[in-house]
Design a protein around this nucleic acid. Structure first.
Ligand code: MN
Ligand code: MN
Ligand code: MN
Ligand code: MN
Lengths: 158, 158
DNA sequence: TTGCAAATGAAGCCTTGGCAACACTTCTGT
DNA sequence: ACAGAAGTGTTGCCAAGGCTTCATTTGCAA
């Protein structure tokens, strides 16, 4: 122990994983809101600020600010005192995020995590699951669960 | 579709998972710094602001600010122009976080995620892995990768 | 039709975690 | 011994994501 500090070696590549984690985190709120807005539109035909705020567990000004960012990023549109809607880009993201969320929950449950815990933990973990990892999750699920046990997943929807 | 808004049902319990994710996220930076400081102390006997900053991929004022928060929370100590050290509490957290990090990486690899990707994704995911889920991961790993002595028996004769 | 409750908007505050720029201290090599 | 390099501290800026408070608009029920 107590070795000298290296010149280049690991210190250059190591920070990359933190940068990736920070980048993923900066998308997390966007992703959750977009998914939630998609849910509400599916249920009620529109997404009201009040409903968004309530489901996200924040106050309405916080939801308003988040929606502003969504609009700025081209994911949502809205006019004063009207509901919030998703752009094509936003709807695509919502679909992608929703599928990933489901896969992460399914994987946790397949590993042996109680369903309730899986739902809680997945909400945070999902945003850090890369495409490569997601594909690995899907492959694992296909090989772990016999196809007949996944009938409802393949056919229906929740 | 287009149903009425419910009075109580899901909207009350749903926000909980976002609250948990936010709570976990608020610990993430603390955990990463504490683990990193522990690493540096193990390697060099002390953790300098410059080395912390370099490994975390941030500038030194950012690292200084993070260390201030660690000190405020009783996880680290330092005096001007001297290195940063962990309190007992900080060292305990570092140990816990390090073990969890390893378990998450191991699980991802066991699932079939490439080692490099596992390392990247785990850096963000780890902070959202609850104790219950961590236990499930450990149990899965023991099941999936049986100890050598038992594997010999299992694969041995017929 | 109108009055009131609910929804939305707007303003201002806080904390966190980034950054750059500049000042000061410590360390190191000659 | 000391000058320059390296490390550290400080200040001030920004954006994001929380919050409260207050103003305004909408929508509904009487
Ligand atoms: Mn989420
Ligand atoms: Mn989600
Ligand atoms: Mn981490
Ligand atoms: Mn880690």
């Amino acid at each position: 122990m107590q070795q000298d500090r290296p010149e280049e070696s690991e210190a250059v590549v190591e920070p990359e994983r933190f940068n990736q984690a920070r980048a993923a985190q900066s998308m997390a709120v966007l992703e959750d809101y977009v998914e939630m807005i998609g849910d509400l539109i599916g249920e009620f035909g529109e997404a009201r600020i009040t409903d968004i705020a309530q489901r996200m567990g924040v106050t309405h000004p916080t939801a308003t600010k988040a929606v502003s960012r969504l609009k700025r990023e081209g994911l949502a549109i809205s006019r004063p005192y009207r509901g919030v809607f998703l752009t094509d880009q936003g709807a695509a993201m919502a679909e992608r995020v929703r599928a990933r969320h489901r896969t992460v929950v399914d994987l946790l449950v397949a590993i042996g995590v109680p369903a309730e815990t899986a739902e809680l933990d997945a909400e945070g973990m999902e945003h850090h699951v890369s495409d490569v990892t997601l594909k690995a999750f899907e492959a694992f699920l296909q090989r772990a669960l016999p196809p007949r046990d996944r009938r409802d997943e393949a056919t229906g929807k929740g």
